[in-house]
Design a protein around this nucleic acid. Sequence first.
DNA 1: CTGAAAGCGCTTACAG
DNA 2: CTGAAAGCGCTTACAG
Lengths: 340, 340
Amino acid sequence: MKMSEKTVKTIQDVARLAGVSKSTVSRALNDSPLISAETKNRIQAIARQYDFQLNIPAQCLSLKESRTIAFVTHACYIQDGYLVGSPFLLEVLGGITAALSESRYDLLMAFIDPKDTHWLQHYQDSGRADGFILMTSSRKQSLVRKLAKTNAPFIVWGNPLPDYNHCSVTGDDFTGGKLATQHLIKSGKRRIAFLGGMPDEPEVQRRYEGYCFTLHDAGLEIDPALVTYGDYSFESGADAMQHLLEQAPDLDAVFVNSDLMAISAMNLLHDRGYQIPGDVAVVGYDDLTIAEQCYPQLTTISQNIPLAGRLLAQNLIQYLRSNTVTNVSIPPKLVVRKSA
Amino acid sequence: MKMSEKTVKTIQDVARLAGVSKSTVSRALNDSPLISAETKNRIQAIARQYDFQLNIPAQCLSLKESRTIAFVTHACYIQDGYLVGSPFLLEVLGGITAALSESRYDLLMAFIDPKDTHWLQHYQDSGRADGFILMTSSRKQSLVRKLAKTNAPFIVWGNPLPDYNHCSVTGDDFTGGKLATQHLIKSGKRRIAFLGGMPDEPEVQRRYEGYCFTLHDAGLEIDPALVTYGDYSFESGADAMQHLLEQAPDLDAVFVNSDLMAISAMNLLHDRGYQIPGDVAVVGYDDLTIAEQCYPQLTTISQNIPLAGRLLAQNLIQYLRSNTVTNVSIPPKLVVRKSA
DNA sequence: CTGAAAGCGCTTACAG
DNA sequence: CTGAAAGCGCTTACAG
């Protein structure tokens, strides 16, 4: 059917066909209880028969909501486009869109320049989006703080800010740190390094605490020479690994705070002639698809990212509907592959 | 500034402040030539001062366009969400959003189930999206054909269908195949295998022709035992590689039709104890970020994906505005790293 | 160059 | 249970 042949375009058209008013059609299509079952069924059947779709912009205007959620993430502008941080994004998007479409919401992509200060107005005041899902690894705090101040409806991936009352979904990072470290200890490793993300992030701090707790529990010493940090970029993984090897040449394992940095660290270890996991065992974090694709396959802490995406969407919608603030934490799981 | 404190919410409010009618405000904000420069500047200044944003749904309703493009891709529903095919998507999205935002368009994500037949109505008849960007590696043909029949405005990544007149952006696959093969020959390889994507895809056929052309040109024979195909999945790379090794144990190089399959093939080669590129050299296709992250770093054919994304967006918008059908082809480039 | 008015396609309080 | 009417916030042909 060509668009041009389509004759039933507005509720007015449906009303004419059904011999009722457009108020009645509107109620029938919105499943209003104010209407008789008979009329409702008849009208819905007609709508289905003619493949009728409500006009969404008109509905938005009337309802004063857009039924659209914006997915917000920092992106750097490079030559021809934005460079989007990490594969993490793509995996979380799958869960988000699944949950949104079940609630009949749409997803708008907002790749924002870290320097752009007008995106919020652009999306919110213009009635384009009802709420925001924030997912931005670096310099997240200031963005969240800004959003919290405007009291725009949003949810973040990561720990909530202490002074504000907003929705969040996060991993249980303490447990994640414990699981990784325990596994390495069980494999007979004793000089276990910690290669963190940004040290000012609460996620990273919790993982470090899990690491320390477990070492302590096993009677192993916590050696500052075995601790260093990267910035989640691929390059920083190798740099930090090199730094660790210089500081503590006798290390026999490393717990890395992201799969991407872990893979970079493994590449450096290969170059230096270390065997993985024999000489140095490596555990990553996130369980992205690439963890199965690298060589050797990466042992890592799974964050159940599709579930995270689903909860980000569902809990934000719940907040929009009822103002309920939720802060959920997803239990991590150890996934053993070849690297440790 | 809290949302609740915001007082200037409609053009009516701006009109009051400026002492003009809302028609005039509308014209000023839309940069209409019908208005005096003085009035225009004054009104724009007021709008800026109060951070005024036009209500987009209302504008859409009036203009009968949504200024929104839907990015359509197949996705499989798994446990908690959709599994989105490839990292290729994420990279092309960067270019698309950059170009769209310059033209003040928004991007809607449409992950559609291959079985879902209603998504077009859902997005188009409802006034949610003005046009579609199609990017779906597998079973693309039927989707494109369906879309072409409805004469919905769309653009595809890939070769255009022969019988329809629609927009497309594609790589120059013949040249890509030539560049890869030439490089391998220049490195002294003589038994060069071809590991293709789906054999019914024109892209794959063009690459194969480039491969044959180059072998022939160098006086090398085309051996069917050196040719096989995968389906772009990670697993299929290793499977196809194994098949090649059985059919032609003396092969000394392989040209793989995607980076993902190339990495999978390299992993298999590692497992079998082959040195890369010494024993077997590997060239991939696409130049995704992972090509720099795998070990050894992958020599590959760059498709300039951010540019592709940019052109997909720009040419679709051009089509929406002026009905100009464009079919552009992006020149590929050889990127030499460690694997060949 | 500017304004009053109609219209875009919905929803919903109000009246019956 | 149903309909007529007002309203959501824009744009633009028409009149001046």
